[in-house]
């Protein structure tokens, strides 16, 4: 749990310093920070939500992206070796934030009509509501936060388990068995290294997916028609 606070301190430090002395022509560090912020701003927020709403929800989206990214990456940092997101608390909190945000956005934009449109999609023959409404209800108000949480949690847990498996197998082959088993140990070690790189990819991808899905939910809630 302490890991999270350390990483948050690091994150605060990076972005505080990175934006403390903003220049019109960015240096290397500022350029990198700007690139990260621009990625969320342009390719997620403004792409899906448009300029106005994108700016409104940008703080939330940026927070989710960088918090998930930084805490995912702790899974491959030697000495920490466990992702801050591989314990259910954080994914759950973020999913709850996303959940609250899109329901709030929907109620604010279409007070009254939001829930009706969500549960009784217009243009559907009324007998179908018997089927559609429970499906919509479950998918929107239960499955969305649950899938958000579990997708992130399980990806990070599994990544962690895989790495643990590979590296402890290497240790076992090399030190406990020895002899010809060392070759097998080398093999598992190599796989472990490969999967470490894979974990970097997964970290980025999961951060992106979480943020993107939040943006998509917001977009659906803000859309005129469902």
């Amino acid at each position: 749990m302490l890991v999270r606070l350390v990483i948050v301190a690091l994150l605060v430090l990076v972005f505080w310093l990175g934006t403390r002395n903003m220049k019109l022509v960015p240096g290397r560090f500022q350029g990198t920070v700007e690139m990260g912020l621009d990625f969320v701003r342009v390719s997620i927020a403004e792409d899906l939500l448009g300029k106005k709403d994108g700016r409104r929800f940008l703080p939330l989206l940026t927070t989710i992206f960088f918090l998930v990214l930084f805490l995912n990456l702790t899974g491959i940092i030697p000495g920490i070796n466990i992702a801050g997101t591989s314990v259910i608390g954080l994914p759950l909190v973020l999913a709850a934030a996303s959940y609250i945000a899109f329901i709030y956005a929907g109620l604010r934009k279409h007070p009254g009509a939001f829930l009706r449109n969500a549960l009784f999609p217009p243009g559907v023959p009324w007998p179908l509501y018997l089927i559609v409404t429970p499906i919509e209800f479950v998918s929107m108000f239960i499955l969305r936060p649950v899938t958000l949480t579990l997708r992130l949690l399980m990806n990070m847990v599994v990544g962690h388990l895989l790495l643990v498996l590979f590296f402890s197998a290497s240790a076992f082959f090399m030190t406990d068995l020895g002899g010809g088993w060392i070759l097998a140990g080398v093999g598992t070690q190599l796989f472990g290294i490969a999967f470490t790189f894979f974990e970097i990819l997964v970290s980025l991808l999961q951060a992106y997916v979480f943020t993107l899905l939040t943006a998509v939910y917001l977009q659906l809630a803000l859309a005129e028609e469902h």
């Binding site: 749990m1 999270r4 606070l5 990483i7 948050v8 994150l11 605060v12 972005f15 505080w16 940008l58 703080p59 939330l60 940026t62 927070t63 960088f66 918090l67 805490l71 801050g84 608390g89 954080l90 759950l92 909190v93 973020l94 934030a97």
Partner: peptide, 13 residues
């Protein structure tokens, strides 16, 4: 410990 980092980072951004 999840809410605290979330709020901190949210506030930061």
């Amino acid at each position: 410990y999840s809410i605290i980092p979330f709020l901190l980072v949210l506030l930061l951004f």
